[in-house]
């Protein structure tokens, strides 16, 4: 296959950036999208040009590193697929492909397609800790968890923090991500002691990072490579409302 790529090139955070056009020739339909970029990069390196910078790590859809908007859709828009697991057979010979980085104030571009997703790390940090007893390993079923609760928690825990929800959202909102992290613990007994404080702090940090606000378009759900349901956002909305109205922080006696 021969393809024409329009790739966002930006030297650093201060550069304004632009789309540059490259030809990708003799691409195997069996290669992955990132392998196709590897081939293009190899040619650029051989010509003495700067290779296209993009994030990648596991290349098997579990690390959440590969972040690019392909033809206007995060990760290329194939259902439940990260960019690394998108294959060139999804494209046709002669296609033009536009590749852009995630666009959000909270995700500043580092270089080309690489963005800084440190905002997600800070949100997770703001969630704090869970109280877990240390000591001997407890019996496997010592803490009963209903099957449905465990399922909800595990569905939320599937989030790989790739940022496709932010990238695909019209408002660059991170609420699917934060909702997933909130729901992950809110549905497990181990997450209960800090549940109210966690949701308050994480939402506050999310707002401070400059993400947008959810307008319930559910575009994130469609773009999420882990197909996380927007019910996690509803859970966050519910918990935050309850926490705002009822949660009391302990005040030390003076």
């Amino acid at each position: 296959m021969d393809l024409t790529l329009h790739v966002w090139r930006q030297k650093n955070g201060k550069d304004s950036g632009r789309l540059a056009t490259y030809k990708a020739k003799n691409v195997s339909p069996d290669s992955s999208f990132l392998e196709m970029l590897d081939i293009v990069n190899q040619e650029l390196i051989e010509k003495g040009e700067d290779a296209i910078a993009f994030d990648h790590d596991c290349r098997e859809g579990i690390c959440g590193s590969c972040s690019m908007v392909i033809n206007g859709k995060a990760h290329g828009g194939q259902k439940g697929t990260t960019a690394c697991q998108l294959h060139m057979r999804s494209f046709k010979d002669g296609d033009e492909i536009v590749i852009e980085p995630w666009r959000a104030k909270a995700f500043p571009v580092v270089k080309d397609l690489v963005v800084d997703r440190g905002a997600f790390d800070r949100i997770i940090q703001s969630g704090g800790f869970v109280s877990v007893s240390t000591g001997g390993v407890p019996d496997a079923n010592a803490t009963p968890v209903a099957k449905t609760s465990a399922d909800f928690a595990m569905d939320a825990a599937e989030c790989i923090g790739c940022g496709a929800c932010v990238a695909s959202c019209k408002n660059a909102s991170a609420m699917l991500f934060v909702g997933a992290k909130v729901s992950h613990f809110a549905n497990l007994p181990q997450g209960q002691p800090e549940r109210m404080r966690r949701v308050l702090n994480m939402v506050e940090q999310m707002d401070a990072e400059g993400f947008g606000n959810c307008t319930n378009q559910f575009e994130c759900e469609a773009a999420c490579p882990k197909q996380i349901s927007v019910r996690v956002i509803a859970q966050m909305n519910r918990d935050y409302l309850k926490a705002s109205l009822t949660h009391e922080e302990a005040v030390p006696k003076t």
């Binding site: 852009e100 666009r103 408002n171 378009q217 575009e219």
Partner: peptide
């Protein structure tokens, strides 16, 4: 929401 995305996409397409 507008402030959250200062640089627009060149090729945004909606899925849902």
């Amino acid at each position: 929401n507008q402030a959250a995305r200062p640089v627009a996409y060149q090729s945004k397409r909606f899925m849902k």
